[in-house]
Amino acid sequence: MSGGVIHNYGTAIRSAFEYLLDRYPEVFILGQGLWSPWYVGNTMTDLDKRFGRDRIIDTPVSELATTGAGVGAALAGMRPIVIHPRMDFMLYAMDAIVNQAAKWSHMVGGQAHSGVTIRAIINRGGEQGAQHSQALHAWFAHIPGLRVVMPATVADARDLLIASVCCPDPVVYIDDRWLYELTAELPPIEERDLALEGPRMVNEGSDLTLVGSGFSTELALRAARQLAEEGVSCDVIDLRVLNPLDPGLIVKSVTKTGRLLAIDGGWRTCGMAAEVLALVSERVPPGALGARPARLTLPDAPAPTSRVLEELYYPSVRSVRDAALKVLAGGTLD
């Protein structure tokens, strides 16, 4: 790509905000930390100075009210973006998201929709522990009526944010602090229709299918690179849009490779990896599988603080690689 702009994941998000605020007067942003240089990383730096504090609103510590206000402002014709600097904080906002935003269109016969975008940041590690580490994307993906988006690349960080805000439905857009250092050269912005976006093949191979979303995709890609050096070639699929989830690409890939390892930064039980395994077991023809499908997730425990336990807790390139080799050898993961 020539003539593009170099971005990291964080500045790519910021460029999406700039684009939206420049182009759409009905876009405004509210949430905690928006006027602070350190709350939301480099993703919103000085937006308040450029667009004014009427449109970039740093709020009281009131997740339910701010999120509900976003839902309502959207019903009133605005395009609000609600920011939760940590996904854990937005649990106070569950009613606005799950009972109101997600249900509105259906409850009123499809005649009105809340096009609010709720940006939730996964911010874990650093010995922060149980209430400052959660990756709850699977929860939201469970809710009909919410579109759930998880960008794993610099381009998607920008482009899926714009698509989310332009989408007439409520969208939960989940970005991950562990991806903020990724860099890429991006082409000029082209708006996309979120309803047409879905899983994407980000690496092609033949022995094994790795499926991830957000940071798990990045782990899968890095593990695939290492596995390639060891003579194992992997399809890597990035889910991108977790709900509604289009199974086509995953089914096609696993039908080809016969082997699946789903990787997820959430918990195991009823998690996103469970959904991927379920759709594969429903749709991949019997006989096409050469090994038991497997998942690598967090253990079913809250995040610990102690650094020795934190090291065991999160999937790593190494643990993905080891799990992939186990799957290839016909084993199970536990």
Binding site: V61, D88, F89, L91, G129, A130, Q131, T305, S306
Partner: peptide
């Protein structure tokens, strides 16, 4: 027991039932 760090403290024998970082939690 090393599971909570500075933000999740517990000392019930002295009457401290717990602290957490979710504001108002």
């Amino acid at each position: 027991r090393g599971m909570g760090g500075s933000m999740h403290l517990w000392d019930q024998p002295n009457g401290f039932y717990g602290s957490v970082p979710i504001v108002a939690g």
